[in-house]
């Protein structure tokens, strides 16, 4: 096992209409549950597709579990669950699982079938007749049946009801607890990721705006509240004023004169996303 699950150096994806990814350099340590956060079109899916080998970058490098993707097919120890939940609509769930067993070396059939049973999805049902939530559960079972070292989930919770969201999270978390698998998880709902993710990768306009250990990042930032007359410290990410009061999110230790608070993951992420948007505008 490598200690770095994903290692990107100046990774760039250029499309005719603009940048998909631009000079992205980041590392995701193994064993982490990482949140991939960014607005639509920030490059989240592009990043996952390049790592899987479904798409090739314009320039730069990425190593997935120590290997460049694409050379020997998708990395054996990587599983990817895309937004479109790729399943054959005409197949029954049982046939999907058998295809999974055929196509994947190291397939754990017992485990994959247990996940499907836990989701209350009938094995005889045609995939095309399943609800969005059920399809996600089957696709997750097939992704996890590979017993991956790294799993990338693109918006896995998007079409799930609250109970299914929780169950999907539990499946992923239990696997992490048992095997130390690395997870990269993208979501629009930052609240879903709070407490779950211990690593953050924030993209905007194809660029990495913030990355690192969540707890470190939170302790390195402050939400400062005080009079707007006060001098701003270095490292301001976003400053807002209302009347005489200023609210500032900055990368700084405690600043005297201000009311200092540690931000929540959501406050931190939103401040970076908003400031990226203002620069772009």
């Amino acid at each position: 096992m490598t200690t770095i699950a994903l290692d990107a150096m100046a990774l760039t994806m250029r499309y005719r209409r603009g940048w998909g990814l631009r000079d992205c350099t980041f590392q995701l340590p193994a064993g982490r549950i990482a949140a991939l956060i960014g607005p639509n079109g920030a490059g989240k899916s592009t990043l996952m597709r390049i790592a899987t080998g479904l798409q090739r970058q314009t320039s730069g490098e990425i190593h997935v579990l120590g290997q460049a993707p694409g050379k020997h097919g998708a990395n054996r120890h990587l599983a990817f669950l895309g937004q479109d939940k790729p399943l054959y609509k005409g197949f029954t769930v049982d046939e999907m699982l058998r295809a999974g067993a055929k196509l994947n070396p190291g397939w754990d059939d017992q485990y994959a079938r247990r996940l499907v049973r836990e989701a209350d999805v009938p094995f005889g049902a045609k995939v095309g007749t399943l609800s969005g939530g059920q399809r996600t559960r089957v696709a997750l079972a097939i992704a996890m049946g590979r017993r991956p070292e790294l799993v990338m989930l693109d918006e896995p919770l998007a079409d799930l009801d609250p109970i299914a969201r929780q169950e999907v999270m539990h499946t992923v978390l239990a696997e992490v607890a048992e095997t130390g698998m690395t997870v990269l998880l993208s979501s629009h709902v930052i609240a879903d990721l709070d407490g779950v993710c211990d690593h953050l990768l924030l993209l905007a306009d194809g660029q990495v705006r913030l990355q690192g250990d969540v707890e470190d990042l939170l302790t390195q930032h402050r939400v400062l509240v005080g009079s707007r007359e006060l001098v701003l410290p270095d490292g301001v990410v976003e400053a807002r004023t209302t009347g005489r009061q200023a609210t500032v999110l900055a990368r700084t230790p405690d600043v005297p004169g201000w009311d200092n608070n540690e931000p929540s993951l959501e406050e931190l992420a939103l401040a970076y996303l908003r400031s990226a948007k203002k620069v772009a505008a």
Binding site: R32, H170, L173, G195, C197
Partner: peptide
């Protein structure tokens, strides 16, 4: 992890 949905770490 199964009862609280928090990170195993």
């Amino acid at each position: 992890v199964a009862t609280t949905s928090i990170n195993p770490n």
